[in-house]
C-alpha cells in the first residue's frame, strides 16, 4: 500500500512537471490448463467478475494479478483445491507458494463451488461466489504480509492447480500438495482428541489433564495425525472458548471416500 502511494505520488509530480511517468505494470498471470475438463480457470479481472472486486480492496490488493476464478462446469460440487504459484522477480529469482483449502475447514462444512458455481482463488485466499453475493458479512484470514510483499515485487507470475476434489470423492491432478492426506489425517486427529474428551468425561476425569497429556506426549516421526491431535489439544488449552472449540471439532464430519477414475494411488 505504501509503495503504491509513493508510485501514485511520483506520477502526479511527474505529470505536473511535464515528464512522462509510466505506471508500474501489473504482471500478467500465466495460468496452466485445468487438470479437469469440467473445471475451467479464468484469470481474475474486475470487469469480468465485479462481485469479487471488493476482496482486493484492502490487504489483498497486491495479490490481484495472481488471482483466478475457478468455474465449475460439472454437475458435482468442488470440495477441495490446491494451487501453486511461481513468482519471478526482476532479477530472475523464482519462489514457489502453495495454497490449498477444503470444505471440512468451514463451519458448517459447505462446498467451495457447487455445481455450476465459482470460486475466487489467490494466494492464501479462497472466496466462494455464494458468499460475495449473499450480502452477509465476510471474515477470513488475511494473507501473510511476507507473501504479499513477494507478489508485489513479481515481474511474472505462473499459477497451476495441483489437485481438485469433487463432492463424490473423485481426485483429479497430481496432488503433490497431499491434500487427500491432509483431509484424512486432520479428521483422524480430531477423532483422537474427541476420544480423549469422551473418555475423560465418562470416567469423571479432569479434561485439562487428559488433553495436556495428549499435547505433550512423545510421537513417532512423521506421525501427522499425532502432531495434529497435539496441536488441537493445545488450541483447546489456549482458547477462552473451550466448549465452542469442542463443538467445532464435534461438527467436523468424516470425509467422503476418495478415488481416482483410473484407480491410481491416492497418497
Amino acid at each position: 500500500m505504501k509503495n503504491a502511494l509513493i508510485v501514485a505520488l511520483a506520477c502526479i509530480i511527474g505529470a505536473a512537471i511535464g515528464s512522462t511517468c509510466k505506471a508500474q505494470e501489473m504482471p500478467k498471470l500465466n495460468l496452466k490448463e485445468s487438470p479437469s475438463p469440467e473445471v475451467v480457470f479464468v484469470p481474475f479481472t474486475e470487469s469480468q467478475f465485479p462481485d469479487f472486486g471488493r476482496i482486493f480492496a484492502r490487504t489483498r490488493a497486491a495479490l490481484q494479478p495472481a488471482a483466478f476464478v475457478v468455474v465449475n462446469q460439472s454437475d458435482r460440487a468442488v470440495i477441495a483445491i490446491a494451487a501453486r504459484w511461481t513468482v519471478v522477480t526482476q532479477d530472475g529469482s523464482r519462489a514457489h507458494y502453495w495454497s490449498s483449502t477444503h470444505m471440512y475447514l468451514s463451519i458448517p462444512p459447505a462446498p467451495l463451488a457447487p455445481a455450476g458455481g465459482r470460486l475466487l482463488v489467490a494466494p492464501d485466499t479462497f472466496v466462494p461466489e455464494s458468499l460475495v453475493v449473499s450480502g452477509r458479512g465476510m471474515i477470513g484470514l488475511a494473507p501473510d504480509p511476507e507473501i504479499v510483499s513477494k507478489f508485489m515485487a513479481a515481474s511474472q507470475i505462473y499459477a497451476e492447480v495441483d489437485c481438485i476434489i469433487f463432492g463424490d470423492g473423485e481426485v483429479v491432478g497430481l496432488d503433490q500438495s497431499q491434500l487427500v492426506a491432509e483431509i484424512q489425517d486432520r479428521k483422524a486427529a480430531v477423532d483422537v482428541v474427541l476420544k480423549q474428551v469422551h473418555a475423560a468425561r465418562a470416567n469423571g476425569e479432569n479434561l485439562s489433564d487428559a488433553l495436556s497429556q495428549l499435547a505433550t506426549s512423545a510421537r513417532p516421526a512423521n506421525d501427522s495425525v499425532g502432531r495434529r491431535a497435539a496441536q488441537f489439544a493445545r488450541q483447546w488449552a489456549g482458547t477462552q472458548h473451550r466448549e465452542a472449540f469442542l463443538s467445532y471439532l464435534e461438527g467436523i464430519p468424516a470425509p467422503v471416500s476418495f478415488y481416482r477414475k483410473d484407480g491410481g494411488a491416492l497418497r
Binding site: T101, H102, G140, E182
Partner: peptide, 12 residues
C-alpha cells in the same frame, strides 16, 4: 514443514 490449508472466507 508446510502450512496447513487456509479455510475459505466465511460468513459472519
Amino acid at each position: 514443514g508446510v502450512s496447513p490449508p487456509v479455510p475459505v472466507m466465511g460468513p459472519c
